[in-house]
Design a protein around this nucleic acid. Structure first.
Lengths: 364, 364
DNA sequence: TTGTACGCGTTATCAT
DNA sequence: ATGATAACGCGTACAA
């Protein structure tokens, strides 16, 4: 009956470890019941008599008892964790995914463990390993997992894996999101239908470990569609490292304008570089959309207030997060394990940055 | 020797639970050492002979063993978790805090547990309780914790508590951030020095549970400074519920302009409503800054591309996160427990949305 | 309705 | 340098 804790409490003045958290045992003693009754009163209130339950709850309140989930997980073999690997947190679309996912899951008592890779494959792998050490009940990764080590890690872990925000060529298990390649093709088709023929794009470029797969896929889709129409693809600029920012957008469009002044319309694989490109055009006295059309991706707020406002492709990332959460719930609820593939789709948001084809090259 | 695992594996066809994770015991058997040696090889490599270590590591790799941190936490009494409670994730400044904090901590093996309240006190309390169940080694909350229940929860938890992003009147323990009240006063003083006398502000309003303390504090500081200068404060609009968005900014400025057309300069307690206000002005044909000056807070990207670009007050939230991480490390590293109070300061970013006082009322 | 015994996977402690 | 054993705090299974 005389635990270390008791000793420490008795010898408090000696600077021994401070009294720690109340345990379920402390509560049980105070309420004059067994530990199991406390556990039940908390986790399955119906099964304990109202007055005992009240006593227990009172003791819980008095002691400020908060159950230890690590211990609970160990015993129940359910961690209550859901792992989420994002490229970055400081991108409102990915933050929305996290938000949507969390809101779908927290009511069910799950805790989302958020990790991010800063667009580094090696870091993604490290994060996945770290996540796995917390024994998540499901793990959600953004886009395809390219590193073989990471893939096998996931495979062996024997937890549901959901890949989001892209359409993986070789899905590990489940996938929910949007085809970035299809987005790129759609944008190309859209511009072609508008009559443009001198089409360009700006995208980041894989730099060793650092790669934006989704942006790259959009760029590739764009390129493929140009090819399919027999259009030249030499105005597709891949430059700079992810994340693709304002500054990179500005410098990419600079390079493009310098080398290909004839370009009429440019697909920026994200609104962020699109805004940077727009600013650069203003600096150069190039009028958008009269002289040059620009189209982005992501429907970031910032694109709504530029002048002109940015035409862009929108994907409902909040909903993506929510749907992912629902899928997790299904999967953990004992649904069959057949691979789910959900395509969420996207919308064109036409604003002011796309005009009509010029007759000649820039400056004519 | 015949555990449930063995049985399940043998009877796999019967649909029994799938084979689970490899345990330290599995590794120890494969490497022909005790569990403790495995543990040491992983956590304290120096203390095991190179050849044994190699055998262990090989077994770890072969089995794809990933340690179970819940079990480790239980035994070591260190969770490795750091709790973070934010108002929201989908605000780049708060996301930056999370980012900075994470980057400072993850190298040391800590996992940041991110929770957000959506500006609801009751939710913040629930989140704190939930966080506490994971036995974080430190807990970081945004701004003051106002609910007494939440405060006592934190106090009893006996973990370092750091309040960030404001200067709490009654700090629980440590605090690091910026005085929002001082920001408000500074902005008022700045505008007064520019010669403005008809000053207004727009801010959200506490709606029951829903409250933006930091925005409110900025608004109060602004009001206090006006008072100190004997200026009228009836053009300070508190309206709408947090989070204070574009739409709210637009409607708030509408109300202000309708009721007080004489207003010359308006402090928007965040750039987001400031941008909304700016858009509304454009709709109404009110020229900013000629007819009306606007100043925001937060230095959001969006304020850089509006026309005019937004004058604002900037706080380095990424650095705030990093510093908080360093403080956590100190505190956990056995530094003395004296309360730390760190004021990070702020900068005025002068762009185009603040002009000079008009001679008469709007429209004259 | 309530209680007992055991095990979850790991680390700490002490022994060898 | 390595091993045996006992916690860590809780839930499951079963007994009363």
């Amino acid at each position: 009956m005389s635990s270390r804790r008791d000793i420490a409490a008795g010898a408090g003045a000696k600077g021994l470890p401070a009294p720690r958290h109340a345990t379920i045992r402390d509560v049980s003693r105070l309420a004059n019941v067994s530990r199991m009754t406390v556990s039940r009163a908390l986790n399955d209130p119906e099964t304990v008599r109202p007055d005992t339950r009240a006593r227990v709850l009172q003791a819980v309140a008095d002691l400020g008892y908060v159950p230890d989930r690590a211990a609970g997980s160990l015993a129940s073999r359910r961690s209550g964790f859901i792992g989420l690997v994002l490229p970055t947190l400081t991108n409102v679309n990915f933050a929305s995914v996290a938000h949507g996912l969390t809101s779908a899951l927290r009511a069910k008592g799950f805790q989302v463990l958020i990790a991010y890779s800063e667009y580094r494959q090696s870091e993604a792998e490290a994060q996945i390993r770290n996540l796995l050490s917390h024994r998540p009940e499901a793990i959600i990764v953004t886009g395809e997992v390219y590193s073989p080590a990471a893939r096998s890690l996931l495979l062996r872990a024997d937890v549901p894996v959901i890949e989001i925000a892209d359409d993986p060529a070789r899905a590990i298990q489940h996938a929910i999101g949007v085809s970035n390649h299809a987005v790129g093709r759609f944008v190309a088709r859209h511009l072609i239908e508008k009559g443009f023929t001198r089409l360009g794009a700006i995208s980041s470029m894989p730099q060793g470990d650092l790669v934006d797969h989704r942006g790259g896929a959009r760029c590739n889709g764009f390129e493929d569609e140009l090819r399919a129409h027999g259009l030249p693809t030499d105005m597709i600029m891949r430059t700079g490292a992810a994340p693709f920012s304002y500054e990179l957008g500005a410098s990419a469009i600079s390079q493009l304008l310098d080398s290909h002044p004839e370009v009429e319309a440019v697909f920026c694989v994200s609104d962020l570089p699109a805004v940077g490109a727009l600013m650069e055009c203003q600096r150069r006295g190039i009028s958008v959309p009269r002289d040059l059309s620009l189209i982005g991706f992501g429907d970031f707020d910032i694109g709504r207030v530029t002048n002109p406002a940015l035409t862009t492709v929108q994907v409902d990332f909040l909903e993506l997060g929510r749907r992912t959460g629902q899928l997790v719930l299904e999967l953990l609820g004992g649904a069959d394990e057949t691979a789910r593939m959900v395509e969420l789709g996207f919308n064109l948001v036409e604003r002011g940055s796309v005009g009509v084809p010029r007759s000649g090259p820039l400056g004519s």
